[in-house]
Amino acid sequence: MKNRIITAIVFIVIIVSTVYIVITKDDRFYLSDEYYNNNSFSEITSDQVDGLINKKYILYTYNNYCSFTIPCDKIFQKFSEDYNIGILSINYEQFKTTSFYKTVKYAPSVMIISNNKIVAYLDADNNNDVDKYQNVDAFKNWLEKYIYLEK
């Protein structure tokens, strides 16, 4: 009887520990080194995107829109300066020729890219993402869910 109780307790502890580890697991990653200590907002082309297959970076695609309260590129540039993280930007016409266009259909958008895959992105069609386009802190909090802001 005593042995059974001990076995049950050990079993429960193992299960609870496993669940705790899974829940609190940190999936964040570091961007590629060159994007830290770097507050540049660099324009790239779709050809250059092909050369970043093994990199981890933030990509901003922009488009013309005729009426906008706060230009979102100002928000992302401010973030880049404040947190010293480099962001790559690509105009929408170029962006449409990349493989990322299969997932991200509307500009403006910011994508977190890891080894040529989109980890997360801001959706221009989604109310839940509006604040991230218009507020540096909201944008930063969103990024922090996926990447480390310091190295």
Binding site: Y65, F68, D125, N126, N127, N128, V130
Partner: peptide, 9 residues
């Protein structure tokens, strides 16, 4: 009207 930035237009 749709949501997000597009909705603002």
């Amino acid at each position: 009207v749709t949501g997000g930035e597009r909705g603002m237009l």
